[in-house]
């Protein structure tokens, strides 16, 4: 199994989780431990009837999966690939928590089927930057305290970084309008706006 082209077995699924865990341990912090029980080599992910072979390119890496055509991109990321940085807030395209990039454009992953994205370049929050090397938008969100609970944050950041390449006016009102698909129930809008304008140099 090559690094670039991995079949997602239970084992690599957990290995992936382990990698995320290691990144966390290096931080001044907060125990984020996952009490994952030991598993045996023989345990394979369940393959439902009607599952299709699907290859997705996510954060520059290919993943080969066997999933049903009805699996949304969001559930595929979270439940099949353990890329849980992308969040579910409504499953109906109404909150923006699940925003990711498909070929550089922002997309609500809950409204999109995974199987429809073979050959696309998918970027999630995990692929944007790391704790050691954050994207400027991630940095600005930290500096401006542009969240409270942090649950909408992945979506806000993915929307905000996509917006940098969109024809969006300079004014605060333009950004507010363009970001209105991403609800923050904690109401950190003022700080999110400041963070975005900071990165845009406005």
């Amino acid at each position: 199994m090559s690094e670039e082209n991995s079949k997602v077995s239970r084992r690599s699924f957990l290995r992936h989780a382990g990698v995320a865990g290691a990144g966390v341990a290096a931080l001044p912090l907060i125990s984020n431990a996952q009490n994952a029980p030991p598993i045996s080599e023989s345990e394979k992910p369940y393959v439902p009837d009607g599952a299709q072979d699907v290859r997705l390119n996510i954060n520059g890496k290919n993943y080969d999966l066997k999933i049903e055509p009805r699996v949304t991109l969001l559930d595929c990321l979270r439940e099949n690939l353990n890329l849980t940085g992308t969040k579910k807030g409504c499953d109906h395209g109404q909150c923006g928590a699940c925003t990711i990039h498909v070929n550089g454009k922002r997309v609500n992953s809950c409204l999109s089927l995974a199987i429809a994205h073979q050959g696309d370049a998918i970027t999630t929050i995990e692929g944007l930057g790391t704790t050691q090397k954050p994207h400027p938008m991630q940095k600005a969100f930290m500096e401006h305290d542009a969240y409270q609970c942090g649950y909408c944050t992945s979506g806000q950041i993915m929307s905000a970084t996509a917006l940098l390449k969109e024809p969006c006016g300079k004014a605060a009102g333009d950004v507010r309008e363009a970001m209105s698909g991403n609800i923050c129930r904690c109401g950190a809008y003022k700080n999110i706006l400041e963070a975005i304008q900071d990165v845009r140099g406005v």
Partner: peptide, 22 residues
């Protein structure tokens, strides 16, 4: 910046439904 800021902006903060098990 908050103590947990790096986790929150990189999608690494673990919320309840982010816990997956074999």
């Amino acid at each position: 910046a908050r103590h947990d800021a790096p986790l929150k902006v990189t999608g690494q903060a673990k919320y309840t439904s982010d816990f997956n098990f074999p």
